[in-house]
């Protein structure tokens, strides 16, 4: 009890940064730790793929086509005899890249637009938000399909499409936060001492709008991975021989009655990755929102 009391005293004994509080919240959340472990695990796999995969993911071996899982091929082989374990591991690199770049595009553009709209207001706000309303009128996947129809199929274009289709979500959240912050005392104070708009938004607005956007971005990574896999599945994303999980799924689906492993392992990889990121994202949201803190 004494230890516990000391802990309680320590907890309130000195100022702690918001991030320290968030980290503590996350540590107490078992789902967050599982999610973080899964994400970390995938990152490690992606970064070490070159050393831990037993085969080149592009090496075909016609004589070993559609082999079931074995010691030689832990996840079996595909229809050209490539090692599925190696391809799934390398696929982690692609999926993480897709998730991060898509979110980078969507978040980067969306946050800037949102802060401009919220901070400046007026006609600019109106113009930006009407464009966002227009984008939001289309389901995300439909918008991504339309963008790919213009840009053409391919993994990089998928990243652009997924990124663009997510812009309105970041814009709305960033604008709402910026709108609430622009008349706060610390912003007025900064303006009073002569700080310019660029300095104020960079130094005072941006850091304060970030927490909800981090949650959105985290969940957005999972969503982007899923969307990209879906687009690859219908032939608009990664093209073979890229070991993208959705592309592997679409190649494997015609063998689903003969070679269960062909679709099962990339499918599991997608599910586990999205699950891990979502668990971490949910926990981040709980930790960053004071109303949800335990």
């Amino acid at each position: 009890m004494a230890g516990s009391a000391a802990g309680e005293i320590g907890r309130f004994s000195g100022p702690r940064s918001q991030w320290a509080i968030v980290w503590r919240q996350l540590r107490l959340n078992r789902a967050a730790m599982i999610g973080a472990a899964l994400v970390l695990f995938e990152i490690v796999l992606a970064l070490t793929a070159r050393w831990i995969t037993p085969y080149d993911p592009f090496d075909q071996n016609p004589l070993a086509a559609l082999q079931p899982p074995s010691r030689e091929h832990l996840f079996g082989t595909d229809d050209t005899g490539r090692d599925l374990f190696s391809r799934v591991i390398y696929g982690a690199q692609i999926s993480l890249r897709v998730g991060l770049i898509s979110v980078g595009i969507g978040g980067g553009i969306g946050i800037v637009l949102g802060i401009i709209a919220g901070y400046r207001g007026g006609v600019l706000d109106n113009a930006i938000m009407r464009v966002m309303d227009l984008l939001l009128a289309f389901p995300g996947i439909l918008l991504a399909l339309a963008i790919i129809a213009i840009l053409g199929p391919g993994l990089f274009n998928v990243m652009i499409a997924v990124g663009i289709s997510s812009i309105p979500y970041y814009t709305r959240v960033a604008r709402g936060s910026a709108l609430a912050l622009r008349d706060r005392e610390f912003v007025l104070g900064a303006r009073a001492i002569g700080c310019g708009d660029a300095h104020i938004t960079w130094r005072y607005i941006l850091p304060n709008v970030l927490p909800p956007l981090i949650v959105l971005a985290t969940l957005g990574i999972a969503s982007a991975i899923l969307t990209a896999a879906g687009l690859s599945f219908i032939g608009l994303g990664a093209v073979p021989p890229a070991p993208e999980w959705g592309a592997i799924l679409t190649l494997g689906r015609k063998y689903i009655n003969q070679a269960w492993w062909y679709t099962t392992f990339p499918g599991l990889a997608i599910a586990i990755t999205v699950l891990g990121i979502n668990m971490l994202g949910d926990a981040l949201r709980d930790a960053l929102d004071p109303r949800l803190r335990r």
Partner: peptide, 10 residues
């Protein structure tokens, strides 16, 4: 591609 008649050429 889906029919598996392109990748083997690679």
């Amino acid at each position: 591609v889906d029919a598996g008649q392109i990748e083997p050429i690679d």
